[in-house]
Design a protein around this nucleic acid. Sequence first.
DNA 1: TTGCATACATACAGCCTGTATGTTAATTAA
DNA 2: TTAATTAACATACAGGCTGTATGTATGCAA
Lengths: 199, 199
Amino acid sequence: MQRENLRRSNRERTDATRAALMAAARALFIEKSYAETATPEIVAAAGVTRGALYHHFADKQALFRAVVEQEAAAVAAGIGQATPDTKNARQALLDGGLAFLSAMAKPGRTRLLLLDGPAVLGRAAMDEIDARHGARTLREGLEAAMREGSMKPVPLDALTVLLSAAFDRAALSIEAGMAREDVVETLGALVGGLFPPQP
Amino acid sequence: MQRENLRRSNRERTDATRAALMAAARALFIEKSYAETATPEIVAAAGVTRGALYHHFADKQALFRAVVEQEAAAVAAGIGQATPDTKNARQALLDGGLAFLSAMAKPGRTRLLLLDGPAVLGRAAMDEIDARHGARTLREGLEAAMREGSMKPVPLDALTVLLSAAFDRAALSIEAGMAREDVVETLGALVGGLFPPQP
DNA sequence: TTGCATACATACAGCCTGTATGTTAATTAA
DNA sequence: TTAATTAACATACAGGCTGTATGTATGCAA
């Protein structure tokens, strides 16, 4: 009856157990927040014991970090896939932004990446995480636009961070019920304002 | 020895105890985050017992909410004080933004209002809190600018939320070590972009 | 001054996290 | 192939924390 586990290599068992833990944790963290989710619940949902959890992850926070990291990678993948980058810089930026909003529309991602993530891991850690995954997209888009000369020259790091914050809040607001079209129009105005009209 | 408390009215005792609890909690929440601060620490720092805490606040989260509310009010007061609103709409917006950044520079405010607040109380609750205190400033500034006709017409709610997010992240970034002048310049470009050049 | 409400202090129950210890199966060395 | 080692768990335990229940003393109102 338990035999299903027996004839698997260690590597397979590890992968399966970690995946089960991360899936269960993800669902609960989304449903009830990190703080209100207890490890006994997680392991029950994953069908393992707390021993397995603490064997594979240093502590509850490490499990959370793994989930967040996986989610950030998924968002980055969603954006990268939807960006054929064959247009002018301004349009590419907006298209990337829309892809970001679509990716963030998957339920729970805003809570993991924008609410609990910064509080549990710290903003510096979150910055590092999405610098490693997605944020390059935005930064490179802005850099390209500035080099091409169509955009006002402003400090690149600061602009990346501030626009990123606006897109983050855009995702949050849409999830909270604000009209997506209004949010998108406003993002367009914000980004468009950085491109002076051609004489 | 304990006599200092005895000859005070109930109202005075309540005020003093609540203030002591909130001050102690504020310091610890800032130093170590909400999650890592235990109520025994708080009451020890405040010089009372947990009985007093749970007499005056429903639970730990209610104490946190009171601290956050107080802090939001302080920020709003700081902004309101520094805004003589005698200039054009665009300059008034930027001045208000600078006042916001100065107010948020007080140590710990970013953690309370921008990191732990949204995670512990939820973004909806935070929105409601600073709608009740500060956010009106920004919203009204934008509304004035749009009515005056100098600013592009965009959905007001969306613009308020997105610019607010940018200012929030600006405060966070400055605290994290980013050059304030770069951040301010970029905010100026972002806001300025919403004002089309006069022909 | 008598009775009730307020402002606490103390004690307790349940839960949660992280660690220590034990057991079985897979891997590696001989 | 077998012996030794390590990985992958499961179980038991120690401390700490939260919220509640209960007890007590002081302010206040009649």
